[in-house]
């Protein structure tokens, strides 16, 4: 029988090795959310669990706030990408949070297991501003930002 420490180590190693991430792209920026934080992904009209709150993902991560650059002077990659009207609005229902919350995204592109060794913490100057974006992983030479939905500051209960 495993003692507490061995159980804890086993639990941690399972968390580190088995996490699946939901990938989706908004305005050319790709994000990944731990599937354990997502109860359901559905079209807006097909939600089974009725959420109390709706949030747009790009508002939560501040996709439109960084528009201070002059698009003509700086490379496109440095400016805030325009968020196009969503043709297929989908929602993620956040698991185990109060109030029950749906976050609107564009159509998810994939689920992926991102190895721990590919993840890099956000640099300190950036981590200061992006609490929910906790790491980045370069996949096919493009960054994927890992987002902790529970750190968006929209929930009334604490982090589980």
């Amino acid at each position: 029988m495993l003692n507490f420490n061995e159980n804890q180590t086993l639990k941690e190693s399972r968390i580190l090795s088995e996490s699946q991430y939901l990938l989706f792209t908004i305005g050319r920026v790709t994000f990944a959310v731990d599937m354990e934080q997502v109860a359901e992904i559905a079209l807006v009209g097909d939600i089974k669990h009725a959420p109390v709150c709706f949030h747009r993902f790009h508002d939560l991560v501040g996709l439109q706030e960084n528009s201070g650059h002059c698009p003509g002077a700086m490379p496109e990659a440095m400016t805030s990408p325009a968020v196009m009207p969503m043709v297929i609005p989908m929602v993620m229902i956040v698991r185990r949070k109060t109030p029950p919350t749906a976050i609107i995204i564009e159509e998810p592109s994939d689920t992926l297991s991102i190895p721990l060794e590919s993840m890099r913490p956000m640099p300190p100057l950036i981590a200061h501003y992006t609490k929910a974006i906790w790491a980045a992983a370069f996949i096919y030479d493009e960054p994927v930002y890992l987002v902790d939905l529970y750190k968006f500051g929209i929930f009334t209960d604490g982090h589980p």
């Binding site: 920026v29 991560v61 501040g62 990659a77 913490p121 640099p123 100057l125 501003y129 370069f138 960054p143």
Partner: peptide
Amino acid sequence: IYYVPGCPAVILGVINVRGDVES
């Protein structure tokens, strides 16, 4: 240089430096 949402305009984004992410 890859854009990161939620940052002030003075932070242009991140780059990949031999596998490490730098602002």
